[in-house]
Every structure is written in C-alpha cells, then in structure tokens.
Design a protein around this nucleic acid. Structure first.
Lengths: 208, 208
DNA sequence: GTTCAACCAGACAGACCGGTCTGGTTAGGA
DNA sequence: TCCTAACCAGACCGGTCTGTCTGGTTGAAC
C-alpha cells in the first residue's frame, strides 16, 4: 500500500524483463529500492552487486550514490522497507479481530498465505542476517524486526491471560521462526499449518 | 572424539594465536579442514577467503588445491564433516535410551548443551545455506543434514505410536529449527528449554 | 647418495566489486 | 532564454578474490 502521493504506485510485476518503462517513471530512488527489493531478496544481498541493481533499475551509478551512502545503506533501506511492509501486513490482518487468541492464530494463517506466494524464498531478515557482518546497520534492522515480533507475541500472550506471558510469547515466536525455516528449506505451506496446530495446543495449556 | 589412529588428535583450543605447532603436525588436509571449520563457522563461508584459511592452517596455497578442487569443495568438506559430527553426537546422546519419548526430549536437552557452548553461533547449515547459491554442492550437504534430522524425528514419532508420525515429526522438527534460530539471534539456552516444553505438550497430545 | 612425494613461500594473472569522477542530456521554473 | 537540479552513460581506480605457477625445502624409502 503506497500512501505517498508524491510518487506513483510501484507496479511489482515480478517477471517484467525490461528495466522499467520511461513513461510515468518513478524517481531514481524509488526504482533503486524496487530493484534492490527484487534482486536482494531473490539472490541475496551479497551475491548481487551494485552493477546489477542499477542495471535493473535503469539508473546511473551516480544516482545511487546521490540517494544512498553506499551499498550498505541501500541494503539497510531495503530491509527497513521490508520490515515496515511486513509489520503493516500483520497489523492489517489483526485489525478486525478482538480476541487475542484469534489474533495469535491469525498470524500463523498469515504465514500460510505468505508461504504460498510464488516468489517466497524464506524470511528476508534471517537470510540477510546470515550474509551480513554483526553490528552492521542492516543487521540492526533485522534485530529490530525480530524484537517487534517477539513483543507482539508477548503482548498477545499477556492479553490471553497467560500465567507467564514472556514464556508463552517466546514459545509462539519459536513456532513462528521454525515455520519460516521449514518453509524456506522444504517449501509449501505445510509448516505454517503445523506451527498453527502446535500453537493451538500451547495456548490451551498456557491459558486456562 | 577422534577415532582415527592415523592422525594425532586435533587440539581445538579456540584462542591459540600461532597457526599450529610444527611438532607432531597433522597432514595439510587435516589442518585445512580444522582451519576451515574454525573460520567458516565463526565468520561465514563467504566472508572468509582462501588466504585466511591457508594462513590459519599454516599451509601453502598449492597444498589446498592439491587436496581440494577449490574453495567450493573445501566448503563442502567442512559442512560434510560438521554433519557427521552432529549426527554422531545425537546418536551418542540417544544410544543409552530406550523409550522413544525420552529420545525425543533428549534431543532438545542436547540442544541446550550445544547452545551453552561458548563458541556457538547458530546452526552452521542454516547460516551456510543462506550464503551459498541454490544447487551448489555445499547446499546439498545442508539439505541432506536436514533430511536426516527430519527422518529421525518422524521415526521416533512412529515409535511413540503417533497416529500421524509424519505430522508429529514435522512439528518436532519445527521446534528444533525454531530453537536454533532463537539461539542464534537471541543467544542463551532458553530457547532449547522453551522448545522442550512445547515438545512435551505436543507429544502428550499426539501420543495417547 | 639418490629419488620422489609432500610440502612451504610467494609471485602472478584474471576477474569482480565498490566507489569516484567526468561529461552529456532533459525538464521545468525564473 | 538562461539556469539549475536531477538524471544517464560509462570510464576509471584501488582493492580483493580465486586459482595457477615457479622454485625451494624436508624427510623417508630405496
């Protein structure tokens, strides 16, 4: 969902071969972020070089270094954008629900939706984390995204009336992570359903 | 545990600054594997270059290319060695147990032991997978290791008398993966205990 | 003593990457 | 019309990476 009226909406058609049509084109920054999103997620932040990104975006090298401090900064911006997109998607999924238990299970339902998407290649933050040095700005975004997810599970566990909301939140987060790993390595949506089934049991045991 | 009498036992003191003493030294191949194990696991298979490995091993470049086809082959050998070490460690942990339920829980106890080790940095296969291209020989080793773990959980679930051993095995594997991710990102042994607690509930529900 | 295999040390080549710089083009506003 | 900002195209530099090659050393077998 693009609410910035200064920029036309980005068409995220995955298989488009030509870089981006020159009619009604986006700003160089927006095209760079779109190309980074596509290439970094598909092939890894380290495998993809600057040259590939600017070629895909149809942008000059100087434009990249005018909009970003360097490759690390572009990676950070890519991850930050993904983090906001994901958090917004989760919040939208939970918005029309009231019972905390339903919200928790809805998160796993959302995982099944995400895993079913044709271009899904696993959790972007896990994959990027493994490619980046500890302490880099990109890693901080990943850890921030992780912290947010953990806090969400703990808060929902608290609302469920769990005796130990921290412990239950940790357990639910565990299932969330495990589902992502399994989806990345094994493919399919089965892991989201398996995690949901375990979550139902765990909730029943922790929230009497 | 080194049972190969052809080679002296490798001293895995982590902070030793000198490469390896020239007395009773190992073969070039063994030293290369030891250095690869140390550096690849600590800093990533992609971040660490050939130069770093041969310097740490105290080995000439030509010796590397005489023992391995190239860097990819060295990475594959490193992962294959790790896979065998891990499988042997799990099998040793389960050897003196008879009840399948105890064996399953012992795997999570072993995770807690592993997570508590000072140099633990997460699952080597997950981290290496994220750094390698799909279809590479190293990736195949990782997927093989994953397949083995899955088969182990499914077999133990079957021995437990689960109605759906495949499903229960998948759920247990999910907890295993989630614990590894949480240990890598958050540190500590809490995730192994949390996964064990959920496993107890899941087993109780699936094996009446 | 000779031979041979395994090894060490390091120079070197070719490729690639991130980042800088120059020069030319376009569009819009004063 | 002129000016300015944003942009494109691509040469270029320094560094790093994998992998090859040459030459010298050691030690054990014969």
């Amino acid at each position: 969902m693009n609410t910035n009226i200064l920029e036309p909406p980005v068409s995220t058609s995955p298989g488009s071969p030509a870089p981006v049509p020159h009619v009604a084109r986006l700003s160089a920054r927006a095209r760079l972020l779109a190309a980074a999103e596509e290439l970094f997620y598909k092939e890894g932040v380290r495998s993809v070089g600057i040259e590939r990104v600017i070629e895909r975006a149809g942008v000059a090298k100087a434009s990249l270094y005018g909009n970003f401090k360097g490759k690390d900064d572009l990676v950070r911006a890519y991850l930050a954008e993904r983090r906001e997109t994901r958090q917004a998607r989760i919040e939208a999924k939970l918005a029309h629900l009231t019972a905390p238990r339903d919200k928790i299970l809805a998160i796993f339902d959302l995982l099944a939706e995400i895993f079913a998407e044709p271009n899904y290649r696993g959790c972007a933050f896990m994959r990027a984390s493994a490619e980046m040095q500890p302490g880099s700005s990109g890693r901080e975004v990943c850890e921030d995204a992780r912290q947010w997810t953990r806090a969400l599970f703990v808060e929902l566990a608290r609302q469920c009336g769990a005796a130990q909301p921290e412990a239950l939140g940790h357990q639910l987060h565990l299932l969330y992570d495990g589902a992502a790993v399994s989806a990345q390595m094994d493919g399919g949506t089965a892991s989201a359903l398996a995690a949901r089934a375990v979550a139902v049991q765990t909730l029943a045991a922790a929230c009497p």
